[in-house]
Design a protein around this nucleic acid. Structure first.
Lengths: 353, 353
DNA sequence: TCATCTTCCGGTAGCGTACCCGGAAAAGAA
DNA sequence: TTCTTTTCCGGGTACGCTACCGGAAGATGA
């Protein structure tokens, strides 16, 4: 039972009650050495009793050293600017907390180049860090890196994709399986008969488990609901338009009865482009991510639905989770799954990435 | 062009450069009286030049008086607990900023009782306020109230519904027209032939323009896209289940060809209940809001889609907007429309209100 | 000219916490 | 016992800013 008017007590009051100086109280608050067991207990019990909440304003003000965070995420390439959104969110959070004495270093790696990831982790480890936000795109290397972080007692959070069974503070990102499941549901709702074409477009092997997990969810929807729809699958391992076009043309002439196309990642705009170019009609097209290219086709009606997962908010929440945990010492959830948003021609203008 | 390492300057440095005391700098910072025009200009130019950003930590710490906010929203009734969600968001924001010396008073009124609203505004005005978050459910009364706020120079923000052309700092809530428009789009996608039943369930006259605006958007969708679907409309002015049941039974026996039902607010669970009870099959049902009752029917498949607008986030953002504007002195948007979210059986578990 | 107001400004005590410095008391070593 | 360590603790200052108090000029009136 808390008091209604929580009179704010400070170290001074605690010191008075314990008959010690505030310096001693401070020592037990930060459990530094130099306090006898007896007075320590006494002070602790008073802290408990008063439910002392330190004044974070004063704490940050008095604390001379800034808190140092670092992020490690893929760089924005001209191949995909997906990571622009998380970065925006990260920078928004940075702007909000910089005045509270938090510094943020940003490191980027090349998604097509493992060694760039490793190299950046090494640079990063040279700094004196209090927390890391990390996109563990390369699994082996990420595990090695986080092992090192644990050894140094530096907390870290995964963003966008998770590596289970790690000691991360939290994971912030999509639930891939459920996302695929939802895609199945949407497609099933929207058409009656015909086959479904499932399109994976990706060359990075490491990111492939991403797509597989979505596919799993997608297929599970149909199994679980005993829906007998034929799913034709195609893997396209080259991400230039020419290759995509060739592959799509081939499969679509072979499979005449395809009525819906599910692209398992953000490259759906290529497929949309192909559909327009080939004057294909009446195919339901579903893909991922709120990218400008995709939105263009959504507006025109070539893409029917986009499934999005608030990449900007992922970045924002990632940094804020670090801040809340490390500065505010608030408890945080072990996993924060982003909502699965359905974006259409009508609501895209109101979508906030 | 800002410096990379923005060396943090404080009042002390400004005072040194201007050859005055920090007290004088403080005076111009808060444009208090007692500074000659000449030194004022000098100090201001130095502030400009150095791009001085006050240390908010120190400011809040040194400022003895707490900042006082107030909210005025409908109380949670057993008729509808819709406002629980915004209140949760508000309390979340409160918890986050209370440590920065912000106090929040909460006032509630009865949606079925105008005079309770007026009474609360009067109580509220007795306090010494720095900002108000307000649900302007009663238009005339709200305008009178905000006029008074303006006279006293108290900034305010509207939440949930807007009154245009007012001097509010911001509006945070849904875009009703677009929401209805989206509902039209969804329904049109999901079935081929038959009539649409549009159901308004509401007794509060003042809230009625809410529903009308949604209906307008809904109808506009069909007009704009030259879709010729018959829309049957029913207004139910009593909100108990018995009345609803009677009305629905009547219209559905009369209109045999109704294939889709669009309920324009959160009372869709009543309709779902009726549908189950009457063993009606194969009707598409769309309504609003992420309420427990609604989710139950969504799970069972009786309700197909719910359109939601993050009520909790509305509350959170409302308070945070006040905070950002008044404490942080950050610019805020004149209107912040919430995203229009589509919730289904598959993604509801990941929806964050 | 002297008294009284204004105008303009500087000094300074906090706000609640962190942390350094140095000193007293207790414990160990001789 | 006396000297040296070690353990334990208090005093005091700093963080950047707010706001009160009071004082030195200048302006005004008689």
């Amino acid at each position: 039972m808390k008091k209604v008017e929580e009179e704010l007590v400070g170290v001074k009051e605690i010191a008075r009650r314990a008959n010690v100086s505030i310096a001693t109280v401070d020592r037990v608050l930060h459990n530094r050495t130099g306090v006898s067991e007896k007075t320590k207990e006494k002070i602790n019990s008073i802290i408990q009793e008063l439910d002392y909440q330190p004044n974070l304003l004063a704490r940050r003000l008095a604390s001379r050293k800034a808190i140092q965070f670092a992020i490690l995420i893929p760089q924005i390439s001209n191949e995909t600017d997906f990571w622009q959104a998380p970065l925006n969110g990260i920078e928004q959070a940075e702007a909000e907390i910089i005045q509270y004495g938090i510094k943020l270093d940003k490191y980027f790696f090349d998604l097509n180049n493992k060694s760039s990831f490793v190299k950046q982790t090494q640079v990063l480890l040279k700094g004196n860090l209090d927390g890391v936000l990390l996109a563990p795109s390369f699994i082996e290397e990420s595990i090695a890196f986080t092992k090192e972080l644990q050894k140094r007692n530096i907390p870290y959070i995964f963003i966008d994709s998770d590596i289970p069974n790690q000691e991360s503070l939290s994971f912030i990102g999509p639930d891939l399986f459920q996302t695929g499941y939802l895609a199945g549901h949407l497609i099933n709702y929207l058409f009656e008969s015909g086959k479904i074409l499932l399109v994976n477009i990706s060359k990075e092997i490491d990111n492939h488990h991403h797509l597989l997990r979505k596919e799993e969810g997608f297929r599970t929807y149909f199994q679980k609901n005993n829906i007998n729809k034929e799913i034709v699958k195609i893997d396209i391992r080259k991400t230039d338009y020419k290759s995509i076009k060739k592959n799509l043309a081939k499969i679509l002439t072979k499979e005449k009865d395809v009525k819906a196309i599910f692209v398992t990642n953000s490259r759906v705009s290529y497929v949309a482009h192909f559909i327009e170019e080939s004057s294909i009609q009446d195919k339901l097209l579903i893909g991922f991510d709120f990218l400008n290219e995709n939105i263009e086709y959504l507006k025109k009606g070539t893409i029917d639905f986009l499934i999005c997962q608030k990449p900007q908010e992922q970045g924002y929440r990632g940094i804020m989770a670090l801040y809340n945990k490390i500065v505010q010492q608030a408890p945080i959830e072990k996993a924060y799954f982003m909502p699965i948003d359905i974006v259409t021609k009508e609501n895209y203008a109101f979508y906030r990435n």
